[in-house]
Every structure is written in structure tokens, then in C-alpha cells.
């Protein structure tokens, strides 16, 4: 692990620290000043209407999206500093995508082992042993030689989680991990995520699964118009939202046909 650019890594300091984050795409300002701390071991769910900037915020944490303004520190790395080594930092930050994005030309085992082998230069046998362990952890066994396209969406997403975990990250980012799944496959992915949270993984999750947020999140953030409108425990934000915007959003999500 890279400790050279460690900043605020002492006990008690947050694992993610975002200050004054703004992101513009042309004339469209998607994030308008975000301040956010996430403590080690905390599970934070990001909810909000489409276009509110949830995914952009998540993608800024590992600099897949470069911020227009503001500073970000994550997993012990100063992400926005002039000397930031993003490739090294990203090995400590796992990411799971809405559309899985498994490498379609590689077998399931290679998908999970490839980053260890090519980035960490772990010997093949060792990387594959770790990959098998991670696959077992997410309940995928006997599929090592299959191609991603031969798996169900739920299985693919669990492999994608194993792929991220194989790098031993300190922080996991989930970008609507169940939004592309058939309804009956959502549960298997959420239960893997729940297990991960129970083991103490620090997680930032963009989601529309309110029951997951209620049950697993330590904190729920309601984002709208590029700012954090509400922040609090699931009970505070989901059950007794203070703002009209959050109330309206939750009502529309929970009662779509009213």
C-alpha cells in the first residue's frame, strides 16, 4: 500500500474526505459544492432523482471523472493533489458498475485475476488462487472457465464484485449495482453487498433499493440538483425526511403508480 502520499490516514480520520467538489460538463453544472466525509467501515447510500449527480459524485471519488473544482482524498490517497498517482490509488478503491463491465474476452477466472497479475505483478498461480477465493466468497463456483456472456446478470455482477475485491481495496464504490438486473436477480447481489458491509468494508453505494439502504446503510444522503439536500441515518432520511424535495422523491419511488 502506498503510504507516501498518505494524508489523514491516522485512526479516526475519515477514509473519504471531499471538500468543495464541483463538476461541470460544458454549461451543465452537475455537482455544485459537495462536502462529504466517510469514516472507515461506514456504509453510505446515495439516493436521489436521475440527473441529481449521484453517479458523477461516485465517479469523482476515484477520479474516473475529473472534478472541476474541489479536493478529494480517498483510501489514504490525495486524489486531486498535483503528485497524485491515480493508478496506485485506484488499486485501493474497488468499483462496481451498473452494467458489470466484465472483460468480455476473458474467462471468469481471468477477469478476477487479471488486475493482480498485470498491475500488482502477482505470480499467476497466486493470483488465481486469490481469484478462486474471491469467487467463492460471492458464491460463484465451477464457472472459472466460462465467459461473462454465459452467466446471468446477477452472476456477472457478483463476479464484478469479486474482481474489485481481489485487489484488496479499502473502499468500495457501487454505481447502481442492481439497476440493470432482472428483479429476481437483485437479491443475490444485494446479499453479497450486505455480507461485505457486515465484514466492515467501507462502502459508498448509489442505489434505488430503499430497503437495502434502510437495512444496511449507516448513513443515507439525498442528492438533488448537485447538492446534498439531506444527510442522516436511514430512519431520519427515509422515514422522516425534513425537506419537501426528499419527501416528494421518496413518495414517487415507494408509490410509483399513485
Amino acid at each position: 500500500m502506498n503510504t507516501a502520499d498518505t494524508e489523514g490516514d491516522a485512526a479516526g480520520d475519515p477514509l473519504v474526505r471531499i471538500r468543495g467538489l464541483r463538476k461541470r460538463f460544458g454549461d451543465n453544472e452537475v455537482l455544485r459544492g459537495i462536502d462529504l466525509d466517510i469514516a472507515e467501515g461506514e456504509v453510505v447510500c446515495l439516493i436521489g432523482p436521475s440527473g441529481s449527480g449521484k453517479s458523477t459524485l461516485l465517479r469523482c471519488v476515484n477520479l474516473l471523472e475529473a472534478p472541476t473544482e474541489g479536493t478529494i482524498a480517498a483510501a489514504g490517497h490525495d486524489m486531486t493533489g498535483p503528485d497524485a498517482d491515480l493508478d496506485a490509488a485506484r488499486t485501493d478503491i474497488g468499483m462496481v458498475f451498473q452494467h458489470f463491465n466484465l472483460f468480455s474476452h476473458l474467462s471468469i477466472l481471468d477477469n478476477v485475476a487479471i488486475a493482480q497479475r498485470r498491475v500488482r505483478k502477482t505470480p499467476r498461480r497466486e493470483a488465481e488462487a486469490e481469484a478462486r477465493r474471491r469467487l467463492a466468497e460471492v458464491g460463484i463456483e465451477g464457472k472459472e472457465t466460462a465467459r461473462p456472456s454465459q452467466l446471468s446478470g446477477g452472476q456477472q455482477q457478483r463476479v464484478a464484485i469479486a474482481r474489485a475485491l481481489a485487489m484488496n481495496p479499502r473502499l468500495m464504490l457501487f454505481d447502481e449495482p442492481t439497476s440493470a438486473l432482472d428483479p429476481e436477480l437483485v437479491g443475490e447481489v444485494l446479499s453479497v453487498m450486505k455480507g461485505l458491509a457486515a465484514e466492515g468494508m467501507t462502502m459508498l453505494v448509489v442505489t434505488h433499493e430503499m430497503s437495502f439502504a434502510r437495512e444496511v446503510a449507516d448513513r443515507v444522503l439525498f442528492l438533488d440538483g448537485g447538492v446534498i439536500v439531506e444527510s442522516g441515518t436511514p430512519a431520519e432520511v427515509l422515514t422522516n425526511p425534513k425537506t419537501e424535495r426528499a419527501r416528494g422523491f421518496l413518495h414517487r419511488v415507494l408509490h410509483p403508480v399513485d
Binding site: 476515484n62 493508478d87 478503491i93 472483460f103
Partner: peptide, 14 residues
């Protein structure tokens, strides 16, 4: 697909 590149970069590949 762009997602393939994003997945690789998010794993720390240059």
C-alpha cells in the same frame, strides 16, 4: 465499449 476501459482503469491499470 467505454465501460471496458473504465473497469480496467478502476482496477489501477494505466
Amino acid at each position: 465499449p467505454k465501460g471496458q476501459v473504465e473497469a480496467a482503469r478502476s482496477l489501477g491499470m494505466s
